[in-house]
Design a protein around this nucleic acid. Structure first.
Lengths: 216, 216
DNA sequence: TCAAAAGTGTTCTATCTACACCCATGT
DNA sequence: ACATGGGTGTAGATAGAACACTTTTGA
């Protein structure tokens, strides 16, 4: 830990962006445009230049990739030496986004794409572990927070909420118990509207009572 | 996030070192030996030079301050711009140590000292918030992990374990329920020995079945 | 024999789990 | 009228909370 000569490691931010697409939890990946591992799928990220806070830098990266604002973003952890070719730290975040509000970049040479977390290719650096870590965190927080608001539109049916939970947890849930538990939390409230979509009884629409993180 | 000129922010590690002393949760502080805030109490830490992983650097800092090895250490989070005078990130860790195994530095100009977390002075940078965050994390993990092993000697009585929990949580616990819950987890096991210390029935001694982190 | 902490069980309550039927709608 | 998903309640099991007395020891 001697500072005989000043240390100038690289600082980078990385964002694990999750969305529920086709009923499955998916993560946004880009192809690397530089060595090492050029052309390989990896998590979006970039160097941090110190001009803004880390949270702001991660938010900017998220907006750059998705065009969406006001989404859920949380710091995950910080890893060192992800890139073995030079010393540095990578501050990883994860985000939960609603796919309807997302417009992916298409102008680039390497177009970003969604990948199911249960069928990922081999990624650059140690990104596979990092995503697994992020999935664990989201699963755990689903139980005692309202972070699912990041994944859903303003109004949604209880069925949609349940499908979201099931996609993240990877297990089916009992419909009546799920409904009871959700309504008991007071995290969601009926909007008063319904949605008709098919030859069956219309579903009541609900909304999150707050779009700020709440712990139970 | 353009890298037109290379960014070289400073990377530092900070360690929040906890111990139970005099029945209270206390944290190890040092007096800053450099500006800004020279002479003010602050958390121990130092610049990271990239020669080892962050975990190794934090472990080294912990050993430097306490002389103790094989203790519980976990990454907390990473903050940017703690020091307003220059861009940089600080990777914060927290550690749980057993006071009996600790030998504080005494050679230095600024001697480190323990401070109760419920009566802290105003610290340099944003260290007060950081400690509050660390306390929250420890409290939460106490419920579903065995991290208390970091705070206790190899053999301990159930009363000592309970006192440790109460010091961290800040609330009294029912003795019989606490005992039942602890023994039900199988995280601890009786050593077979007893400890006599006073005009009353001797207490059975217990030990943690493992000194690796376990989640319930 | 007394004081002081260790050790032990049961009852009550709240929470979670499992499970089956009626309702509103479109075709 | 029928097929489809939406909506509801109850009984049993499990886990947590409250609570008082007996045991072992040193003085």
């Amino acid at each position: 830990m001697s500072a005989s000569e000043p240390a100038h490691p690289i600082v980078a931010t990385i964002v694990v962006i999750f969305a529920i697409i086709d009923g499955a939890l998916q993560v946004l990946l880009v192809r690397r445009s530089a060595d090492p591992d050029r052309g390989r799928w990896a998590l979006p990220g970039g160097r941090w230049d110190g001009s803004a806070t880390l949270d702001q830098a991660a938010t900017a990266k998220l907006v750059e990739e998705t065009g969406a604002r006001d989404l859920y973003l949380e710091q995950l952890f910080t890893a060192s030496h992800l890139d073995a070719t030079q010393p540095g730290v990578a501050v990883a975040y994860f985000a939960l986004v609603e796919p309807a509000r997302v417009r992916l970049r298409t102008t680039d040479e390497w177009v970003p794409a969604w990948h199911r977390v249960d069928a990922l290719p081999e990624l650059a650096f140690r990104n596979n572990e990092l995503i697994a870590h992020a999935v664990d965190r989201v699963r755990a927080k689903l139980d005692y927070t309202n972070i699912a608001y990041g994944l859903l539109p303003d109004a949604f049916t209880l069925r949609e909420l349940q499908t979201t939970y099931e996609a993240i947890l990877g297990t089916p849930l009992d419909r009546r118990n799920f409904r009871k538990r959700m309504l008991a939390t007071a995290l969601i409230a009926p909007t008063g509207d319904q949605r008709r979509e098919g030859a069956h009884r219309p579903a009541l629409l609900y909304t999150f009572t707050t779009r700020e993180p709440v712990f139970l």
